[in-house]
Design a binder for these strands. Sequence first.
DNA 1: CATGAATGAGAATTCATTCAT
DNA 2: AATGAATGAATTCTCATTCAT
Lengths: 209, 209, 209, 209
Amino acid sequence: MQEQQDPKQRIMRIAADLFSCRGYGLVGVREIAQKANVNISMISYYFNGKMGILRAIIESFFENYFEIIKANYDPALPPEDSLKKLIKAIIEFMRENREEALVMFSQLHIDEPEIRELKVQKVQKMFTFFHGLIRQFGVDPAQRRQQVAIFGPALISTLFSTFLLQPIAKGIFKIEYDDKFYDEYVNLISLYVLDGIHGVQRYMNEREA
Amino acid sequence: MQEQQDPKQRIMRIAADLFSCRGYGLVGVREIAQKANVNISMISYYFNGKMGILRAIIESFFENYFEIIKANYDPALPPEDSLKKLIKAIIEFMRENREEALVMFSQLHIDEPEIRELKVQKVQKMFTFFHGLIRQFGVDPAQRRQQVAIFGPALISTLFSTFLLQPIAKGIFKIEYDDKFYDEYVNLISLYVLDGIHGVQRYMNEREA
Amino acid sequence: MQEQQDPKQRIMRIAADLFSCRGYGLVGVREIAQKANVNISMISYYFNGKMGILRAIIESFFENYFEIIKANYDPALPPEDSLKKLIKAIIEFMRENREEALVMFSQLHIDEPEIRELKVQKVQKMFTFFHGLIRQFGVDPAQRRQQVAIFGPALISTLFSTFLLQPIAKGIFKIEYDDKFYDEYVNLISLYVLDGIHGVQRYMNEREA
Amino acid sequence: MQEQQDPKQRIMRIAADLFSCRGYGLVGVREIAQKANVNISMISYYFNGKMGILRAIIESFFENYFEIIKANYDPALPPEDSLKKLIKAIIEFMRENREEALVMFSQLHIDEPEIRELKVQKVQKMFTFFHGLIRQFGVDPAQRRQQVAIFGPALISTLFSTFLLQPIAKGIFKIEYDDKFYDEYVNLISLYVLDGIHGVQRYMNEREA
DNA sequence: CATGAATGAGAATTCATTCAT
DNA sequence: AATGAATGAATTCTCATTCAT
């Protein structure tokens, strides 16, 4: 019986699993090593300690994330289509990397300096991208920074929300989180976000006038 | 120099602080006890262990939260005003209970059975309330459950988002998170949410026709 | 619903129970106080600490024990009858004070100075009595000390043995430890001890000759 | 200065020492680790916790004990010789494993499920052996179970008695517990037991007739 | 007499990491 | 590259006891 994947990958995947459902601090390297079928020492060897696993997970997540964005953001399209396509791609990406996404999101507050720096850098990049996006929507340059500060987090959180509450929601609603659900989900959430943004835009323009 | 508050309150507040910025698992009872200026043993004595603090924080948070909602939800108002008033109240509440809110939100994944049950129960209650809210907006009964499942988490996450990303955002934008900011914040977020919901509504009605 | 017995008695009885089946060290005063329905502080108040309970139990046990011996040892009888009567009385006594007997016996090794002194004193007294007993059997004065050292412990252990192994034996044999059993028990054990002693006596006399 | 024995053995021996003279509950792993000159963590590592040491001691004791019995029980001999040879071997064995024997005997009451099961199993085995032994003595099959229940514990206790009371007795009698003492001890105890058994046998036969 | 909150020392255990092999 | 025994600090929790009320 052979192991699939290389040990490093296995460790990261198992760790993401555990971190996402118990929290970084409550998961021990022993458990990770055991479940990943790897010798404990390998964790130090590969990742230079437990924190290194977390960093690797977050780094890998963002790397893939930005690739997805780059691949699916088309400024040539009308902003509505552009955003919708993006949302669709992001949701798909997060369905495939659910644990990693959750780790990234729910361990955002871990304030080890090393991690903090990483997070700031990545979130910064997300905001920069978002800044470009709302320019497409015609937001007044003077307003942009504030709107990014307000709607950037809101948008990110919105897209994460299903995954975050899913374990609890599953027990409450009797919903299947399958392809069909997510098709409708992308549809409605896109509408919601777009109309929300438009509403805000309209208001800003009126107020200015 | 006398201590303010009773020790139990002090422990909960300090713990919320620490949990919110380092995560439950990485915070030790020693540190909590020391910063709260109580004997370590008191934590077991009062809360029956470290997990008891987390539970108490979450319980207290939701208790206050639902009181705010009860006090600020007025079904007699037009749904737009009703929602806006609610958002304003919730944001205000969360500004005053920032740490508790963050703990609740970011430790949602801790899956100790005891905590899990509590979370399910409270989130359930939130959804029930949300269910009533969208009825006010005229959502078709057949659609309500799905819309709650989609927009419930989205709305909650949106309202939490500023607080969640604030520590990072503070370093990126040079924004003062003061009364003025939050006034505008409530304004815009309300618009965003309302127009978002309206957009989805419009779409659903068209599709049905 | 009123409490029977006075608190001191209640504490001692409960403690004997717990000590006998878990050992002194593994039983906490909290548990004793709770089961005895007494405030924890009362233990220090009455017994001057946990060790005080143990001492009180041992003291009380021996006090009653020597009273039983005094009341049932009749040097006027032939030694065989005298010993048999005594064994019968001791077994009866231990049936009624099973827990205390077990505590005394199984906690014999606790070497807190305070307890040690007590034990030495009481065991000494038992040996002194035993010394008188074997004189009745005509043991040569020169042999007495050695025989006490050998058969004293043997006799004591023999009489305790049923009680000590009873919890285990109950699960192995399907025997009812009732009046009928103990009648036969006293019968046979008395025979065993008497014939044993006689055999040793005979041997010693022969060897001397 | 090198350590003799492997750490596991060292821990077990030291622990048996401490348990035997202070009781399982009053001995801390810290003390064991320190005296055995090993790191505290090794106790969990090797024995899976403090209780594991106790279990290991009891297991090892019985293992050796049954080996001694197997090696020294010769059913071909006349029962008297057979029993005497056995008693001699057991006493010798217990002299060499005094602490372990005491732990086994005096911690018999510890009722952790794990330990309980072990004890039941081992005591059962002792009784089974004893059952075979009294058959040799011609005990009526109908009587055997009861006699095992009565004289099994009595015999075991008798053989342990010297070791159990020795620490106290040492201070009372001025006896040297040396080879010479134990030679005589084995002699007399064998006589005592044998004549005791014979006496009981005679009585049973008479009663039956 | 009685209470129960408070204390601080100490309990067992687990932690991430290292190092000789 | 991989192992697993070993380390010692840190973990949470419980202990017997005290003291102000």
